[in-house]
Design a protein around this nucleic acid. Structure first.
Length: 884
RNA sequence: GCCCGGGUGGCGGAAUGGUAGACGCAGGGGACUUAAAAUCCCCUUUUCGCAAGGAAGUGCGGGUUCGAGUCCCGCCCCGGGCACCA
């Protein structure tokens, strides 16, 4: 801590451990001396430790926040003591639905409610003594921040990674508004319980699928929990296969393109299935089938994803179109069905069905009496078969139980030129054949879908986009060389609208004030209700705008435009905030080159596993785009990731208001102090584990602090009389001292906070029994404790006469020579059973030990009258005597 | 259904293949005190035994090993994720 500021650091004057005095005292000192400032351009090595920044909800800090935040704070303080220039920032992910809902209810601007919540969060976080660099605080709703969120969007736009499309949203006719997924409960609106339906609206979509391969590849290079990597992999869902073209009997309709991962089973295809939404369906439907097909398509359309998903567990449905396709490999005529078990959004929305070797096709075929053609003879490996299951099938109203055991891998049969090959050989051979004959090709497919990136809400970043006519866009293009090659367009009201981005100089595009936060009623955001902002004369060169109701300003660059009314989702601001912390005041760029070069990306990122996929995938996507633009130097944003576990209520279930088991950090701080809370959160168990809160357990760590206080401070508030500069520890305590320094350091490096605390408790228990205490030993311990309990550590460090701050001192080193003892404990086993132990000189040989064991009163009886066959000696630990 | 993670005293948890239960909570006994609080000391896996001491024991069943909470195989239960992705 800098003493040069002229701020004289004094402890409090309390005699007891009065945390209510001590904690605010040190907090105010930290506020005035700002010791946690991270310095850009330091010569020290850097360490960047990042917390997932919170959404500042009205409920205040949840106990889960300080859990992860304490862990990172301990590491931040520890690394500073180890000589690192530490960047440990905090900010607010402050756009979001609750603030908007509050605004709708109260009519007040969401910004004011948001700022109040931030104030409360800031107060609570300060009360916990976290060593954040407050000069780097970011707020995603601050125009100075979201200017750069919009700027990054423009980079995506320019690269052709942003487009518009009609996508279904939840629409509630009664409320005349679009609802978020979480606002829909059981097919009804959460507010009012009105029915909701699907409605297509114009949406912004980000082409994250263009990065699917890189997003999988990058996982190799990061130190993340395996489960999180696997979740992302599964979410991206890469699969290799082939695209196959089937001719249609009605040649006028062209070819039917399908995707399959099992081209080897092409000879086993006995029917085709299209998603009900497939564009070829109307053309393929024969007059005789038109009625049932239309009815089925209508029924599917009215189903939500959720319905379709829950139906999946039930029976398959589908109808025949009346048309046939031709199998390119054998000319077989196969019927074309539609069924909602085929999804339009994956592959080509059409499949070849091979009921003999695919469980889903098997079910469908048995339900509708479609033929089954075996093409795999089965193999010998454990994964060559599906599990044998008895399936209930209905054949014309009759219910039957059928055994199913489908070969998945093995030897090809009844497949012409593939016969005799293994399935994996056949996959290669058939793709070669398809390519040579122009009937298909190798293809990789992903489950990952493009990212729906717009919301019909007020409280989000506005899109820096103005919709203009084709002619105006062409005019703008002459002065705006950066416009994408393929314009983003949308057909609306009979005309084609062109998306014209704001020039970067015109950012940020701010939210206009609105009369009401209620949605527009048409499905558009409340922004659609602000004509002066919405309908404008727009200067394509400068980005300036005047309301369209006014006269058109002079000059060629002025165009008639309508602003985009969608706003960005909450993910946007959190996609890049870790970069803004590097250089938060920079008005020229999102982060300066020097800051990016020095700080790079976080060395450690700690946050909940609930963000394993979405936030962490979206942020990686944006980062890779920035990397490809040369805007950031690394390809991956988060080198090392750690998930803290959830803290359950004392009843062992998730904390919730309705259960009344919520722990409020404010209450704990009032009753025990922030230092005790921090220590207890870390002592509860491994950071990554899910663990219940035990209100009684907190007493233990509180007693531990008080115990060490008493060792240092007497009842009069002065130094304890047992403390002196001339005292020395007993040999055992001296050894324990060095063991403790070693273990605490190792445990901190490995993020095992619970065992570090336990070791410190063992050490203090031993110090308590010492006849005299060297002052240096207590100083050293106060320093070791300071990352965990910073106010307490500083208070005692200062009272013990430490110079400066406990945090400014170099981290204690252990002396390996002090760890070696001259005796060791050897455990004696007879035939593997523990029978006794002995303290022996370190130099003892195996032969010495055997002799000691044979004379040992507890061991000898088990050896009596038996012959020693063999001994196993684990050096310094154990001697196992095998007798018979 | 598939993919992960986990099951250890009354409770939270600790144990590079080497003394299972560190540390803490709770409980019992004692010291100090007029008393209480605070603090300190002792006990506290189960079971047999007056004791000394013995036996069993890390979800269940097998296995590898001189030795398994830890490694392998097969189950059961709990938690999380995905879920007709062809």
């Amino acid at each position: 801590m800098p003493q040069s500021d002229g701020f004289h650091v004094k402890p409090t004057d309390c005699t007891d451990y009065d945390f209510l005095k001590i904690e605010p005292h040190w907090q105010s000192i930290w506020e005035q001396t700002r010791p946690f400032r991270a310095e850009n351009g330091s010569t020290k090595p850097k360490y960047y430790v990042l917390d997932m920044f919170p959404y500042p909800s009205g409920a205040g800090l949840h106990i889960g926040h300080p859990e992860g935040y304490t862990a990172t704070d301990i590491l931040a303080r520890y690394k500073r003591a180890k000589g690192f220039n530490v960047l440990h920032p905090i900010g607010w992910d402050a756009f979001g639905l609750p603030a908007e809902q509050h605004a709708v209810r109260t009519g007040t601007h969401p910004a004011s409610n948001t700022q109040n919540n931030i104030k409360n969060f800031r107060r609570q976080i300060r009360a916990l003594g976290f060593s954040y660099d407050w000069e780097r605080e970011v707020d995603t709703t601050d125009p100075k921040y979201f200017r750069w969120t919009q700027w990054i969007f423009l980079q995506l736009f320019k690269k052709g990674l942003a487009y518009v499309d009609e996508r279904p949203v939840w629409w509630c006719p009664e409320l005349r508004t679009v609802l978020a997924n979480e606002e829909v409960v059981d097919g009804k609106s959460e507010v009012g319980g009105f029915p909701v339906e699907r409605k297509n609206l114009r949406q912004w979509v980000l082409r994250i699928t263009a990065y699917a391969e890189q997003l999988i590849d990058g996982l190799k290079d990061v130190d993340w929990p395996d489960s999180t990597k696997r979740m992302q992999e599964a979410w991206i869902g890469r699969s290799e296969g082939a695209e196959v073209l089937f001719k249609l009997e009605n040649a006028a309709l062209g070819d039917l393109k399908i995707f399959t991962t099992r081209p080897d089973t092409l000879f086993g295809c006995t029917y085709m299935v299209l998603a009900p939404e497939h564009p070829l369906v109307p053309g393929l439907t024969t007059d005789a089938q038109r009625e049932v097909v239309d009815a089925y398509r209508k029924a599917t359309a009215s189903k939500s994803d959720v319905d379709r998903m829950s139906d999946a567990a039930k029976e398959k449905t589908g109808v025949f179109t009346g048309s046939y396709a031709i199998n390119p490999v054998n000319g077989a005529r196969v019927p074309i069905w539609i069924a909602d078990y085929v999804l339009m959004g994956y592959g080509t929305g059409a499949i070849m069905a091979v009921p003999a070797h695919d469980e889903r096709d098997w079910d469908f075929a048995h339900l509708f009496n479609l033929p089954v053609q075996k093409v795999i003879a089965g193999g010998s490996g454990p994964n060559d078969w599906t599990a044998t299951t008895a399936r209930i099938v209905r054949v014309g109203g009759e219910v039957r139980k059928v055994d199913m055991r489908l070969a998945l891998e093995g030897e090809m049969i009844d497949s012409d030129f593939l016969d005799g090959k293994t399935t994996s050989e056949a996959r290669t051979a058939i793709i070669d054949w398809l390519e040579q004959n122009g009937r298909g090709k190798r293809r990789v497919n992903y489950k990952l879908r493009d990212w729906l990136f717009s919301r019909q809400r007020y409280w989000g970043e506005p899109f820096p986009i103005v919709w203009v006519s084709e002619a105006d866009y062409a005019r703008a293009a002459t002065v705006r060389p950066e416009l994408p090659k393929n314009p983003v367009t949308f057909v609306e009201g009979g005309g084609v609208q062109y998306a014209l981005p704001l020039p970067e100089v015109a950012l940020p595009l701010q939210l206009p004030d609105v009369q009401s936060y209620l949605p527009s009623g048409t499905g558009e955001s409340p922004l659609a209700n602000v004509p002066a902002w919405l309908e404008i004369w727009f200067n394509a060169e400068t980005g300036e705008a005047v309301p369209a109701s006014q006269a058109k300003p002079a000059g060629d660059a002025w165009l008639r435009g309508r602003r985009e009314t969608n706003t960005m989702p909450q993910w946007a601001g959190s996609c890049w905030y870790y970069l803004r912390y590097l250089d938060p005041q920079n008005a020229e760029t999102f982060a300066g080159k020097d800051a990016l070069a020095y700080w790079g990306v976080p060395d450690l990122y700690v946050g909940g596993a609930e963000h394993a996929v979405l936030h962490l995938l979206y942020a990686r996507f944006w980062h890779k785009v920035l990397f490809d633009l040369g805007a950031v130097p690394q390809a991956e944003p988060f080198k090392k990731l750690f998930h803290q576990g959830i803290i359950l209520g004392e009843d062992g279930v998730k904390m919730s208001k309705t259960r009344g088991n919520v722990v409020n950090p404010d209450d704990i701080i009032r009753d025990y102090g922030a230092d005790t809370l921090r220590l207890y959160l870390m002592f509860l168990g491994p950071l990554e584990a899910m663990k219940p809160w035990n209100p009684k357990g907190i007493e233990g760590v509180h007693r531990f602090l008080r115990k060490f206080w008493r060792e240092c401070i007497g009842e009069d508030g002065k130094l304890n009389s047992r403390v002196s500069d001339s005292a020395a520890l007993t040999a055992d305590a001296e050894k324990l001292r060095h063991e403790t320094i070693k273990k605490v350091g190792e445990d901190l490096d490995a993020m095992r906070f619970n065992t570090a605390i336990s070791q410190m408790m063992i050490y203090v228990n031993a110090l308590q029994k010492e006849p005299a205490l060297p002052r240096i030993v207590l100083l050293e311990f106060a320093q070791m404790l300071a990352p965990f309990a910073p106010h307490f550590g500083e208070e005692l460090w200062t009272r013990l006469g430490g110079t400066g701050s406990a945090m400014a001192a170099a981290w204690p080193m252990f002396d390996p020579a002090k760890l070696v003892a001259d005796t060791m404990t050897i455990v004696f086993q007879v035939n593997g059973k523990h029978r006794g132990d002995a303290q022996v000189p370190v130099a003892s040989s195996e032969a010495d030990l055997i002799k000691i064991a044979q004379e040992h009163p507890k061991v000898a009886p088990h050896l009596a009258g038996k012959a020693l066959k063999r001994t196993i000696y684990v050096k310094g630990k154990l001697l196992n005597l095998l007798v018979a």
